[in-house]
Design a protein around this nucleic acid. Structure first.
Lengths: 245, 245
DNA sequence: ACAAAAGTGTTATCAGTACACCCATGC
DNA sequence: GCATGGGTGTACTGATAACACTTTTGT
């Protein structure tokens, strides 16, 4: 009873990871691979999101947390439930049906989708039980089920979210340079932002705190490091009722 | 098979209705009432949202549409899926358990919650099969299940939404005065907005179109009527990447 | 000394905010 | 003619947008 699965409800997780080096926003996918009995034909060979069935004694948030932990070993990462997907045909591509039959899944499953924000470097890709791999958001491989749609909607939600709340810092290490923040925003929003204006804007925020430290190990002029103070942000926060229609 | 219920998945709908006369934002609730066998004790007497179980052949949006139609007879109203609720204890208040037993519901049901936007006047409260009733959002009665939480979260989502998109016009008749828009915003956001500044802002929008008509049947100076053009809005729309953190 | 990225200032424009009175109409 | 709500204008302030060169450091 304790771990009894709810067979028609799953939680799928879009794990976004930002790579400060390559300056790219990535999605963590796992491989879906199946050969025919004889081993001669490849029946399924694509990628999907990670997800599990909900357990009877869990909240949806619990399930999402469990999915991420199993996949990456990480806990306490930023997560957001952003949408439920329940189309009766969401799992009925040709390869999806083969896969579902093989795995014994319920064809009529609705999924509650979450996204997570973290740093690619925090995920250990050795010991790669699930053949997980990072793919840049703008260069995804072939994706099974309705997971491409789910990723796309997660990404749209993320773009809106990071304009209104300081979630961007979840994608960066605790200590960062202003230019790193500048680059995450550009990657995530897929736009160019004037560097000088951006710096001024950010440095003027009281919750962006300059540290008595500079970058080390860089081969050029080391940049000033900053941190984001969630405490100060929360204290200062006041809702902005700007009607922007 | 055609109408087979999925017994552990429901869609609950928060129906928001704005009343131009009383200038209040309301929620449509139905009564949950149960007496003991002898009829001597009232076991349950409170209010809940309307919701139904999902059918096997439906999308989540279909289910939500069906709920609204059954409750109000209306179709084609603005709707938004905003959150899934899956806490294992979400239905386990004392009265909830009595009710669930009486109705034969599944205790472990997750619900996908939607909200609708419409005008109170569009709902006919005669022929009141479900004992439905409007309650002002800031003066709700006793509410069963986790539905108060659901209403609260719907309201928070609505407030954010109406700052960023012209959904407010879903709460008004096709022809409206600027002051009516002013008042909906004030009611929904629960703030005061300077009338002159608001007028200027709105009148300058190309998709707010003055009509060759004035109010009729009012006992004072009749106000200019306007309409909202979704087409013009969509044509003009361009994403605004203002980082507001 | 050189390559590379860090860092810096000014001006113009636009949007938001604050604020109080006259006007048109129906009765 | 009067009560009621409709409608109007200005000045201030703060934020955004556009734009190119100098500085610092490691090698």
């Amino acid at each position: 009873m304790k771990f009894e699965k709810i067979t028609n409800i799953s939680v799928d997780c879009v794990v976004f990871g930002y790579d400060t080096i390559s300056k790219s926003l990535n999605v963590l996918l796992m491989k879906r691979y199946l050969e025919s009995d004889k081993g001669s034909d490849i029946l399924v060979n694509d990628h999907v999101l990670t997800g599990y069935h909900m357990h009877k004694n869990e909240t949806l948030d619990d399930t999402a947390t469990r999915v991420l932990k199993e996949l990456t070993g990480l806990t306490n990462q930023y997560k957001k439930q952003f949408k439920a997907f329940g189309d009766p045909n969401r799992l009925s591509g040709e390869k999806d049906l083969i896969w579902i039959k093989h795995e014994g899944f319920n064809l009529r499953t609705i999924t509650v989708a979450y996204y997570f924000l973290l740093k690619t470097e925090d995920v250990d890709l050795k010991n790669n039980k699930y053949q997980k791999q990072w793919f840049p958001i703008n260069n995804l491989p072939e994706i099974g089920f309705d997971h491409e749609k789910i990723i796309f909607e997660a990404y749209e939600d993320l773009k809106i979210k990071c304009l209104a709340e300081p979630v961007i810092f979840e994608l960066l290490p605790d200590k960062f340079t202003i230019n790193e923040v500048h680059e995450v925003y550009q990657s995530v929003l897929d736009i160019n932002i004037d560097n000088r204006n951006f710096r001024r804007k950010l440095i003027n925020k009281k919750y962006i705190i300059p540290l008595d430290e500079k970058q080390v190990g860089v081969s050029k002029k080391p940049a000033q490091l900053y941190m984001f103070s969630k405490d100060i942000y929360k204290k200062m926060f006041q809702k902005n009722y700007l009607i922007n229609i």
